[in-house]
Amino acid sequence: NLFVALYDFVASGDNTLSITKGEKLRVLGYNHNGEWCEAQTKNGQGWVPSNYITPVN
């Protein structure tokens, strides 16, 4: 599942992941309501807002 970041997101805690607009990432899963997804980039792994990313076509 390859996705791309639509916006910059700055991590606010130990379990969140900073991403940069245009960065590619893999989604590993979603939380119970789908608002957050666990993602992996070359810089690490953590939670990002699911509305900040979109699938790569």
Rank of each mutant, 00 (worst) to 15 (best):
N1M: 02
N1Y: 15
N1K: 06
L2D: 09
L2C: 10
L2W: 11
L2Y: 05
L2A: 02
L2V: 03
F3Y: 03
F3T: 03
F3C: 06
F3W: 07
F3M: 04
V4M: 07
V4C: 05
V4D: 03
V4I: 14
V4K: 13
V4Q: 09
V4R: 09
V4Y: 06
A5T: 03
A5D: 01
A5E: 00
A5C: 12
A5R: 01
A5S: 13
L6D: 11
L6F: 04
L6M: 10
L6Y: 02
L6R: 12
L6K: 09
L6G: 10
L6A: 12
Y7M: 08
Y7K: 15
Y7P: 00
Y7E: 15
Y7N: 12
Y7D: 09
Y7F: 14
Y7Q: 13
D8L: 00
D8Q: 09
D8P: 09
D8Y: 04
D8C: 03
F9T: 03
F9I: 10
F9K: 06
F9W: 09
F9V: 13
F9R: 07
V10K: 13
V10Q: 15
V10G: 09
V10T: 11
V10F: 13
V10H: 15
A11S: 05
A11G: 08
A11M: 08
A11T: 11
A11I: 02
A11L: 05
S12T: 04
S12E: 14
S12K: 09
G13I: 15
G13V: 09
G13N: 14
G13E: 12
G13Y: 07
D14W: 05
D14R: 14
D14K: 07
D14S: 10
N15I: 15
N15Y: 04
N15W: 11
N15L: 08
N15V: 08
N15F: 06
N15D: 12
N15C: 13
T16C: 01
T16Y: 03
T16L: 03
T16M: 02
T16V: 15
L17K: 03
L17H: 06
L17Q: 04
L17G: 00
L17A: 10
L17S: 01
S18N: 01
S18R: 15
S18I: 12
S18K: 05
S18A: 10
I19C: 08
I19H: 00
I19M: 09
I19Y: 00
I19N: 00
I19G: 02
T20I: 15
T20L: 13
T20R: 08
T20W: 05
T20C: 08
T20N: 10
K21W: 02
K21P: 01
K21Q: 13
K21R: 08
K21G: 04
K21C: 05
K21M: 07
K21Y: 07
G22S: 06
G22R: 03
G22I: 01
G22K: 03
G22F: 00
E23W: 01
E23D: 13
E23N: 02
E23R: 01
E23C: 06
E23M: 07
E23G: 02
E23Q: 09
K24P: 03
K24M: 13
K24T: 05
L25R: 01
L25K: 01
L25D: 01
L25P: 01
L25T: 04
L25G: 09
L25W: 00
L25E: 00
L25V: 12
R26Q: 04
R26V: 09
R26M: 14
R26F: 03
R26P: 00
R26I: 08
R26S: 13
V27D: 01
V27H: 03
V27M: 12
V27C: 07
V27T: 04
V27I: 10
L28I: 08
L28W: 05
L28Q: 07
L28H: 02
L28V: 10
L28M: 15
L28S: 09
G29I: 04
G29R: 09
G29Q: 12
G29N: 09
G29T: 10
Y30M: 11
Y30S: 14
Y30Q: 13
Y30H: 04
Y30V: 10
Y30K: 07
Y30P: 09
Y30T: 11
N31F: 03
N31P: 05
N31D: 14
N31K: 15
N31V: 07
H32S: 11
H32L: 11
H32N: 05
H32G: 14
H32Q: 15
H32V: 09
N33Q: 10
N33G: 13
N33M: 06
N33Y: 01
N33T: 15
N33E: 12
N33H: 13
G34K: 14
G34M: 09
G34W: 05
G34I: 03
G34L: 06
E35Q: 11
E35A: 07
E35V: 07
E35W: 03
E35Y: 02
W36I: 04
W36C: 03
W36M: 14
W36F: 13
W36R: 09
W36Y: 15
W36Q: 06
C37S: 08
E38D: 14
E38T: 07
E38N: 08
E38K: 14
E38R: 06
E38W: 03
E38I: 05
E38G: 03
A39S: 05
Q40P: 00
Q40R: 14
Q40L: 12
Q40F: 09
Q40E: 07
Q40I: 05
Q40V: 13
Q40S: 13
Q40G: 06
T41G: 14
T41V: 07
T41K: 05
T41H: 11
K42V: 11
K42M: 08
K42R: 13
K42D: 15
K42S: 09
K42P: 07
K42T: 10
N43E: 08
N43I: 12
N43P: 01
N43C: 04
G44E: 07
G44V: 03
G44P: 01
G44F: 06
G44R: 07
G44S: 10
G44L: 02
G44C: 11
G44A: 09
G44Y: 05
G44H: 01
G44K: 10
G44W: 11
Q45M: 08
Q45I: 03
Q45W: 04
Q45Y: 06
Q45P: 03
Q45H: 13
G46Y: 05
G46D: 01
G46Q: 02
G46E: 01
G46A: 10
G46M: 06
G46V: 06
W47M: 07
W47V: 06
W47C: 08
W47D: 02
W47F: 15
W47Q: 01
W47G: 00
V48G: 00
V48Y: 00
V48W: 00
V48F: 04
V48C: 10
V48Q: 02
V48D: 02
V48I: 13
P49F: 00
P49E: 02
P49I: 02
P49Y: 01
P49A: 02
P49D: 02
P49M: 04
S50E: 05
S50C: 15
S50I: 03
S50H: 11
S50V: 13
S50F: 09
S50T: 10
S50N: 14
N51G: 10
N51F: 12
N51M: 05
N51D: 08
N51A: 10
N51I: 06
Y52M: 14
Y52I: 06
Y52N: 13
Y52P: 00
I53W: 00
I53H: 01
I53D: 00
I53F: 02
I53G: 00
I53R: 00
I53E: 00
T54K: 14
T54A: 10
T54I: 09
T54F: 02
T54E: 15
T54Y: 09
P55C: 10
P55E: 10
P55Y: 15
P55M: 13
P55Q: 07
V56C: 08
V56H: 12
V56P: 15
V56N: 13
V56K: 14
V56W: 06
N57Y: 09
N57Q: 15
N57T: 05
N57M: 01
N57W: 01
